[in-house]
Simulated scan of single mutants.
Amino acid sequence: MKIGMFIKNFAIGKEFSKNGIPTKSGAEFHCENHALQLIEHGDSVYIMTKKKYFFTKGREILNGIDLCRLHAPFRWLESIIRLITTHRNTDCFYIIGTPHFAVWAILYARMFNKPTTLVITIKEEVFEKQLNWRNKILASCTNYIAISQEIKDELIRKTEVKSSQVHILPQGVDSNRFIVVNEQVKRELRKKYKLPEDKPIVLFCARLVLRKGVDTMLKAWEIIHKNNQEAILIIVGGGENHLFDQIKAVSQKLGNSIILFGEVQKPDEYYQLSDLYFFPSRMEGLPTTMMEAMASGVPCVASDIGGCRDLIAPSEAGVLVEAEDYNTFAKEILNFIDNDSLRKESAAKGRQYVESNLDCYKLLPKLRNILQNKL
């Protein structure tokens, strides 16, 4: 099967923006992971995206993916030319988000009776059908994928598509990569990263922006440190430079109990050495980092918002707290730190839920059926 994927930004050519935020978004990870899984399955995949910088190539093979960067101001025209020349005979179209140039692929697909699938990865991407002509075309796809129940409900309400066209399908996680390790390995990993072997370690692994609840995290940590000065908070992820400075200042005030690791390529071992995952985000689609934590056997204390709710409520892999309620966050984290049996029980339930419901390779057949309009 030949699959054309369309996304606004992909491998733009710079790792960080001027203010320190990583340029690779959750949608891009979603696109890349699905592309690689489909290729591994035996499908042919190409990606069309915006060309943002002059120094990036118009077309290249990146990790086995045929990547085409479309030139402004005629991306729509270039995409059509490619579809009838270099990328003809596409069997189905997979659109991530709502890139403007993708509407022409939808029209092309409709002309040749090819199925189109549009995936929404965050509620704020859901569009009003009647707002403009582009949105009317986006609302004419064959199928839609929502990665959470909240997104599905919003999509049906705003676009007027039929419920039967909208499929809830998590992006999933590789449960063979993110694994539970024993105590000996956990201690060795802590030695490797120069962390204390015998102290409780709480992990925050996400982009450092206010939307992720960094301010809530710091307020909660002040309370946690006051009650348990042994606890360590490790922060993994890139983000806004001024927030790094703020975190360093708070850490100094709290006995250097917060350790910043910055952006890392593979967070696997940081999950494995941690006792608890702290995720006070204000807004999510379906947080990949939380799925990775669950797969690694790390219980979660997270905001009671769409996406987080889809993971914690059915799995019992942790607890949900009202977003911004730093007092309750601190209370629940201290409870997990002090309750070894609760941590182990939540960890086991989270891992089991991932294996049964969130393994990306088990979800792949459903994705392929949706793309081919076989459901």
Score class of each variant (00 low, 15 high):
Arg309Gly: 05
Ile337Asp: 00
Ala317Met: 10
Ser303Lys: 12
Met290Leu: 15
Asp304Ile: 07
Val298Lys: 00
Ser341Thr: 14
Asp310Val: 02
Asp338Val: 03
Val298Trp: 08
Ala330Met: 12
Ile312Tyr: 03
Gly306Ala: 00
Ser341Tyr: 11
Phe336Ala: 00
Ala313Asn: 13
Ala317Pro: 07
Leu342Gln: 13
Val319Phe: 10
Cys300Val: 13
Leu334Met: 02
Arg343Cys: 11
Asp325Arg: 00
Met291Glu: 03
Thr328Val: 10
Arg309Glu: 08
Ala295Thr: 13
Ser303Cys: 06
Ile305Cys: 04
Arg343Thr: 03
Glu316Thr: 10
Asp340Ile: 13
Asp340Lys: 12
Gly318Met: 03
Glu345Val: 11
Leu320Phe: 06
Pro314Phe: 13
Arg343Val: 08
Gly306Ile: 01
Leu311Phe: 12
Asn335Gly: 09
Ala302Gln: 01
Ala302Cys: 04
Asp340Glu: 15
Val298Gln: 06
Pro299Gly: 11
Pro299Lys: 08
Ser303Thr: 04
Glu345Leu: 11
Glu316Tyr: 08
Thr328Tyr: 07
Leu342Glu: 12
Ala330Asn: 08
Ser315Lys: 07
Ala347Arg: 10
Asp304Trp: 06
Cys308Ile: 08
Lys344Asp: 12
Ile337Cys: 00
Val321Met: 05
Met290Ser: 10
Ala330His: 00
Lys344Asn: 06
Leu311Ser: 07
Ser296Met: 03
Ser303Pro: 07
Ala295Glu: 10
Ile305His: 05
Glu324Val: 13
Asp338Ser: 12
Gly307Phe: 02
Asp338Tyr: 12
Lys331Cys: 06
Leu320His: 01
Gly297Glu: 04
Pro299His: 02
Glu316Cys: 11
Thr328Pro: 01
Ala313Gly: 03
Glu316Ile: 08
Cys308Asp: 00
Ala302Trp: 01
Lys344Trp: 04
Asn335Ile: 04
Asn339His: 15
Gly307Pro: 00
Met294Glu: 07
Asp338Pro: 01
Asn327Gly: 14
Gly307Tyr: 02
Ile337Lys: 03
Lys331Phe: 08
Ala323Ile: 08
Asp304Lys: 06
Ala317His: 08
Pro299Phe: 07
Leu334Tyr: 11
Thr328Glu: 14
Gly306Tyr: 04
Phe336Ile: 05
Ala323His: 09
Ala347Lys: 09
Leu342Val: 12
Glu292Gly: 06
Gly297Leu: 05
Ser346Lys: 14
Met290Lys: 06
Ala293Phe: 11
Phe329Asn: 01
Cys308Trp: 03
Ile333Phe: 01
Glu324Gly: 07
Tyr326Ser: 01
Arg343His: 09
Ile333Arg: 00
Val321Arg: 00
Arg309His: 13
Ser303Leu: 04
Val321Pro: 00
Asp304Met: 09
Phe336Gln: 03
Lys331Asn: 08
Ile333Tyr: 00
Ser315Met: 12
